[in-house]
C-alpha cells in the first residue's frame, strides 16, 4: 500500500474518533449542567482537556456553555473543532477516494455538507442533545461502514490502528484533567458533588453502564482502574493499546517484510507496563505522572509508526 494512502486512512480514523469524543464530552456536560444548577465552571475543564485554553481565552472571556459549544463545534480557528475534524477527514478521504468504498466516501461527504449548512448552528442551539447525538451516530456509522464494506487488509488495519491510538489518547486525557478539576477541596471527596462528577466523567466516555456491571461504588480509584486497566471495555487505555498492537501485527503479517518491528517493541513495552500494574501502584506513583508517561510513550509510538511505514528511508 502507498505510504501516503496508509497515512490518510490512519488520520481519517483519528479525526473522526476525535470528533466523536468532543461531541460526547459536550453532551454529557450539558446534561450535568441540569443536575448542578448554578455551577458555572463546568466547561472550563473541557477547554483544558482539549489543550486549547490559550486560543479560547483569546476569543472569549468566559467559558459559558454556548461559547464552549460554538468553539468546540464550529470554530475553524480551533484546530480540533468538530467541523475541522470532519473537514480534514473529508479532505483525506478525497485524496484516497479510490481506496475507500463509495459508501464510506458518501457518508463523510454528506456529513461535511451538513455541517456547512446555513441553519445548522441554529439547530444545535435549539436542541443540542439531538445535534450531538447525530454527530456521535455519524462517527459510529463511519466505523461500521468501514468495517462492513472495506477489505480487512493493510489499509483497514492502519485505520483501526489510528482509531485505537486516538481513543487511548482521549481517554487518558479526559481522566487526567478531570482528576485535578474534580477535587477542588480534599474535604469534598465522597460527597454528592464528587460522585455526580465522576459519574459524568464515566458517561463522557460512554463507560457508566459497563462500569456499573463491574463496580458497586463510583470512587476515583475504581474509575481510574476501569478507564486505564480494564481489559474488556473498548475505551479503556489498556484495551486500546492491545488492539493497536493487534492491528500492527496484522499489518506486519500482511506485508512479510521487516518494516514495523521497532514500533512493535514500543507498543509492546507500554502495553506490558499497564498489563502488570495495579491501580494502587498507579495511584502511589501518581495518576497524573502515570498518564503523562502513557502520553509520552504514545507519542513515541506515533513517531515510530511514521518512521517504519510512512516516511522510511527509501532503500531498494
Amino acid at each position: 500500500m502507498l505510504s501516503r494512502v496508509a497515512d490518510s486512512l490512519f488520520w481519517i480514523s483519528r479525526y473522526i474518533e476525535r470528533a466523536e469524543n468532543t461531541a460526547r464530552i459536550i453532551d454529557v456536560n450539558l446534561n450535568l449542567m441540569l443536575d448542578l444548577p448554578g455551577e458555572e465552571r463546568l466547561f472550563e475543564p473541557i477547554i483544558k482537556s482539549a489543550g486549547c485554553s490559550e486560543i479560547f481565552y483569546n476569543k472569549y472571556t468566559k467559558a459559558t456553555a454556548e461559547n464552549v459549544m460554538d468553539f468546540l463545534t464550529f470554530d475553524t480557528d480551533n484546530q480540533d473543532s468538530i467541523i475541522n475534524c470532519v473537514s480534514i477527514a473529508r479532505e483525506n478521504a478525497r485524496c484516497i477516494r479510490e481506496t475507500i468504498t463509495l459508501e464510506m466516501w458518501m457518508l463523510i461527504n454528506k456529513f461535511y455538507h451538513r455541517l456547512y449548512d446555513k441553519k445548522i448552528k441554529e439547530e444545535m442551539l435549539n436542541n443540542p442533545h439531538n445535534f450531538f447525538t447525530e454527530i456521535k451516530e455519524f462517527c459510529q456509522l463511519y466505523v461500521g461502514i468501514q468495517d462492513g464494506t472495506m477489505s480487512h487488509g493493510i489499509g483497514w488495519n492502519f485505520a483501526w490502528l489510528g482509531r485505537m491510538l486516538e481513543r487511548a489518547d482521549q481517554t487518558s486525557r479526559i481522566l487526567d484533567v478531570k482528576y485535578f478539576m474534580l477535587l477542588p477541596d480534599i474535604s469534598m471527596v465522597g460527597m454528592t458533588l464528587d460522585t455526580v462528577q465522576w459519574t459524568a466523567l464515566l458517561k463522557s466516555v460512554s463507560a457508566f453502564e459497563m462500569f456499573r456491571k463491574t463496580y458497586a461504588n463510583v470512587t476515583p480509584q475504581n474509575v481510574s482502574e476501569f478507564l486505564i486497566l480494564n481489559k474488556e471495555f473498548p475505551r479503556s487505555v489498556y484495551y486500546c493499546l492491545e488492539h493497536a498492537e493487534r492491528a500492527l501485527k496484522n499489518i506486519i503479517n500482511h506485508q512479510k517484510t521487516d518494516n514495523g518491528k521497532k514500533s512493535m517493541r514500543v507498543i509492546g513495552k507500554l502495553k506490558s507496563i499497564l498489563e502488570f500494574s495495579t491501580v494502587d501502584e498507579i495511584i502511589l506513583h501518581g495518576l497524573h505522572e502515570t498518564i503523562d508517561e502513557i502520553q509520552l510513550r504514545l507519542s513515541d509510538f506515533n513517531v515510530s509508526i511514521y518512521n517504519d511505514f510512512i516516511n522510511c528511508v527509501w532503500k531498494i
Binding site: 500500500m1 505510504s3 493493510i154 506485508q255 511505514f309 532503500k315
Partner: peptide, 9 residues
Amino acid sequence: VYEKTTQGL
C-alpha cells in the same frame, strides 16, 4: 520508477 509503499519501493 518506484512508488513508496508501506513495505518499501
